[in-house]
Design a protein around this nucleic acid. Structure first.
Lengths: 233, 233
DNA sequence: CTTCGCCAGATCGTTTGACAATCTGTCACG
DNA sequence: CGTGACAGATTGTCAAACGATCTGGCGAAG
């Protein structure tokens, strides 16, 4: 692993299906597609200006990632999270993101940490714009960098599943309360601890980061239930 | 969670796509489809007696699970494992399967342990038939039971990704050496330790089970490379 | 009033057929 | 030998049609 990016990278084919997947993801992240909402092939195809089979393929991909949920013959809906699921995700994320972070910390080339620093810079910049949608994306990018830069192929394969769950949690976060300064501090600290190489500290920080985040989201969800009669929702 | 299975369960629709997925999985597990082998839509459709789009959907699902690998416009191949990947999978499996096993052990209803016992019985019975393919399937069933009976929704979602990697490892195992008695002993012990409720022992046993299995497969792969000139391959 | 059966409409699942897009290999020419 | 053109193979996409399934509404019977 030479740890250097080639100056010229191959131009990748982008299929219309992939473009559709990206568009749907954007709609999910922005809240245009809402939890529980019905997603019909024909409508989606028309909205995106693609054929129905292509829409279907894009939907199938997001179904496999967990952002959409399908029942045969009954259609597709946007996945809905719940406090129990958020806690399940956190339970799985803690050990996995710890594995990833430890691999980053142990990588003598420092390439992974450098990538993580860049992702942090981007996230901090996004937070300072006050644009919640933009910073949600950089937030996801930051965590994805932890998983991908770990170099563990299995973690890379698993990331899309995890991302879709985090995306749902971020939607809850955005919808209720947003604290950019707090977010910046937490992620700055996470990256600093990983870069420190102190493995015990990394284990503890990753755990706390994820656990606190999940508890926060669960708390917001439970407040949502209490004020479910709100006309704004 | 009442912990009881209803006497009558809804009749599930099985789409042709799902039937095709199952058939392809069987071909992968049996070795009919070999690592690195090209899988063409038109041929697969003809072999399975389905239309090309349906074959395409089945393939896409297996691509998302990791059993098949796709490059746009260049086609699909059966995924190939490698020592590095096997070790990556083990690194991820150890904490996750530990989480699952601990949840099983902590479940006061004992339902998960009962399911696991049933899966073990099935696996032991399969091993005693001497049919390697059949026992590969029950082996996968047993580990899938650990993940699914844990009750963690995220683990359930992740299982297909893990299963496809284990399936590749089992193919290596079958192709080289098979030790039913050893297999039976290892899985009997794993289940017994989980059922014992001794959490430290569970952590250690799951770790050893997965780690030793991975090292064994890696060893076989490396022997394969050494004798790669063998005409039987 | 309740329950059941029937039917229509909507949508998903699948098939057929065609064409566009891309890749790969071969051949001819400079 | 290198380059460009072309053909063939396969994938990606589209259009259209039909089969399969589900859901809701309505009328009839008890």
């Amino acid at each position: 692993m030479p740890g250097q990016q080639p100056a010229l990278t191959p131009i990748a084919n982008t299929t219309r299906r992939e473009t559709a997947v990206i568009a749907i993801r954007r709609a999910l992240l922005s809240g245009e597609l809402k939890p529980g909402q019905r997603v019909k092939e024909t409508e989606l195809a028309e909205s995106l200006g693609i054929s129905r089979p292509t829409a279907r393929e894009a939907m199938n991909q997001l179904i496999s990632e967990g952002s959409l949920v399908q029942e045969p013959y009954k259609g597709v809906r946007v996945a809905v999270s719940s406090p129990a699921v958020v806690l399940d995700v956190a339970e799985v994320r803690m050990p996995l993101e710890t594995v990833a972070a430890l691999r980053l910390a142990r990588d003598a080339s420092g390439e992974g940490i450098a990538r993580l620093r860049r992702a942090l810079d981007a996230h901090l910049a996004a937070l300072s714009t006050g644009d919640a949608l933009f910073s949600s994306r950089t937030h996801l990018d930051l965590h994805r960098t932890v998983w991908e830069a770990s170099g563990n192929e299995m973690l890379k394969k698993m990331w899309p599943l995890v991302e879709s769950q985090i995306m749902m949690a971020l939607n809850v976060d955005q919808g209720v309360f947003h604290a950019p300064e707090r977010d910046a501090e937490l992620h700055q600290r996470l990256v600093d601890v990983i870069a420190s190489g102190d493995e015990d500290a990394i284990v503890a920080e990753v755990r706390a980061h994820i656990s606190n985040s999940a508890e926060s989201v669960v708390g917001m969800m439970r407040e949502d239930v209490l004020e479910d009669a709100s006309p704004a929702r």
